[in-house]
């Protein structure tokens, strides 16, 4: 009897919890759904009623955004820059992390400190000088220049996460590998990389998301319309006088969709990736 009463009371106490959960779900998901509906409606329809359901559904807007506007260019620029930069920073970063985690050598701590101090550098401290440096090197307003900057500015985080993980791989494995006559590169390639794969995957997702969304470096270091990445391309659209809300919404969806698609399949990996730096 007493337990039943307590249960009923507990149930009642849960009501505010459930209400809050529902409310926050609406707040966190609502804006996204709103943009999704707008991406399938024309601007005229949106201005008539901003919160209507798409009817008819204008799927063709995605094709229009892709072909008539420059979204396809922006998309491929983003894809190229991000894929190349993530690949490079992963390879370079895991090599350095492996070296720092495995080998004892004079200057180890110094190199570690040097690289990891990059974690607290505000981008504003770099951006103006990077602008000048890329000019000097003739890499200003090139995707190559942006890739280099992305790699350089994301090494610190990558090494930080990987080094921590690599250091936890039992030393016995390496001793055994050494006994088996593995060279230093084979040890890196055949021991560290396979065992460290989860951590590497984590940094890949983290870097992918951050770079796919990056804005400040891109806005300063690129000027040509043909070289813009997606975030810049979308900004370019909103700068317009006759704000074409419907088209911008479609553009937003094009920018979000790759992330959402990957998230649908790899949500755990992405959550782990994004929070890796904080949890460790």
């Amino acid at each position: 009897m007493a337990t039943q009463m307590r249960l009923g009371f507990a149930q009642l106490r849960r009501l505010p919890l459930v209400l809050f959960v529902v409310l926050y779900s609406v707040v966190s998901g609502g804006p996204f759904l709103w943009v999704a509906t707008m991406s399938l409606r024309t601007t005229a329809e949106i201005f008539k009623n901003p919160y209507g359901v798409p009817s008819p559904v204008h799927w063709e807007k995605f094709a229009d955004a892709w072909t008539k506007s420059n979204y396809s260019t922006y998309f491929w620029n983003s894809a190229t820059v991000v894929v190349v930069a993530v690949a490079l920073v992963t390879v370079i970063g895991s090599m350095a992390a492996h070296c720092l985690a495995r080998y004892r050598f004079r200057g180890n701590r110094f190199v570690r400190f040097l690289i990891l101090s990059g974690l607290v550098l505000p981008p504003q401290l770099l951006i103006l000088a990077l602008f000048q440096i890329l000019l000097d090197l003739d890499l200003y307003n090139t995707l190559t220049g942006l890739v280099i900057v992305y790699v350089a500015t994301h090494i610190a985080m990558t090494v930080y996460i990987l080094e921590g993980f690599f250091a936890q791989i039992p030393q016995d494995l390496f001793d055994a590998a050494r006994m088996d006559g593995y060279s230093d590169f084979e040890i890196f390639w055949r021991v560290t990389m396979p065992i460290g794969a989860p951590a590497i995957f984590t940094t890949v997702t983290l870097n992918f998301i951050i770079l796919w969304n990056e804005f400040l470096f891109a806005v300063v270091l690129l000027t040509d319309d043909a070289k813009r990445t997606l975030p810049l391309g979308i900004m370019h659209f909103t700068g317009s006088h006759q704000l074409d809300v419907g088209m911008v919404a479609t553009g937003l969806m094009i920018a979000i969709l790759p992330i959402i698609l990957i998230y649908a399949f790899f949500s755990e990996a992405m959550i782990k990736g994004m929070t890796a730096g904080a949890v460790r």
Binding site: F131, L135, Y140, N141, V220, L221, M235, G239, S240, H241
Partner: peptide, 22 residues
Amino acid sequence: ITWYEKNPLFAALKTALPAGKG
């Protein structure tokens, strides 16, 4: 001819011109 909106145009010019580009 590359067509811009006003603010993006001048944002682009302000970085390109000091670079001796544009």
